[in-house]
Design a binder for these strands. Structure first.
Lengths: 134, 134
DNA sequence: GTAACCAGTATAACAGATGATACCAGTGAA
DNA sequence: TTCACTGGTATCATCTGTTATACTGGTTAC
């Protein structure tokens, strides 16, 4: 996507810009939005049942949780298991594939924390770029 | 993120869940959306002028580029410099702070590539979770 | 003088993400 | 029987990100 000859970029391989941008956007697409990371986190912390996950994430609605769980399942990040009852029970678990996300999440947490400090430290009236509603 | 014994997560410190979720969401907030990563990439590849960046990113509109550049500047990821003319010229550059993002971007690229392969490999009718318009 | 470049802004519309509220069938306990 | 729990779905409203299109004032080249 971008011509590189003089400038080395943060992107290591100068030849596959388009592919790398696409990979980045795929990644953002899967993990993006307001609720996916909190949901993944909740499940990875041992919450397995629908209402249990719901209660563990303040502010989320049933509708959003339902939708996001489906998407996460399609992306192989979590697994939904039904135990035929009675009573019928449903369990959500993280997959091993989900663990390949570990590095990214760790890096993001680290960066996000630093960023909040950075921005608050040098804030001007208009420079609030962190979510302060939560 | 993932249970290490049972309740330990990828999040190292079980007590600061809320803080870590917030950090994650901050990070997503800064880097999220359709255009920020491509813009950062373009600038890091040496494009400095507004129209130059615009031309390097197929599909972006003037309006979006303008908006995103402002946000990126507020977040200290890029720097805008005006050379009083005439003619007046404007230059955008990545900051050193922007480079602290390097690890994350590299990880995201790696994961995004793997994910695309993974999903395509095992695709069902409904499991398309990658952006195929681009 | 007129055409093309520069760095944008203005306005309106659209689309998808998110929120609010209500509801469903089934189970189990009091 | 009534109540609260389970795992959700349905409908509608709103908010935000994104797009489309046009326009500005200034500069430079022909």
């Amino acid at each position: 996507m971008i011509p590189v000859k003089k400038a080395a970029s943060i992107l290591s391989n100068p030849r596959n810009q388009a592919e790398e941008i696409q990979a980045l956007q795929d990644c953002i697409y899967v993990v993006g939005g307001k609720w996916r990371l909190p949901i993944i986190n909740s499940i990875c912390n041992g919450n397995k049942r629908f209402r249990e996950i719901e209660r563990s994430i303040p502010g989320i609605t049933t509708r959003m949780l339902s939708r996001e769980l489906k998407d996460l399942e399609l992306n192989r990040l979590i697994k939904r298991t039904v135990f035929e009852g009675p009573p019928v029970l449903v369990e959500y678990n993280s997959t091993s594939y989900c663990k390949t996300f570990g590095n990214i999440i760790l890096e993001m947490i680290k960066w996000g924390k630093g960023h909040r400090e950075e921005i608050i430290k040098t804030r001007t009236e208009k420079s609030i770029q962190i979510d302060e509603t939560s």
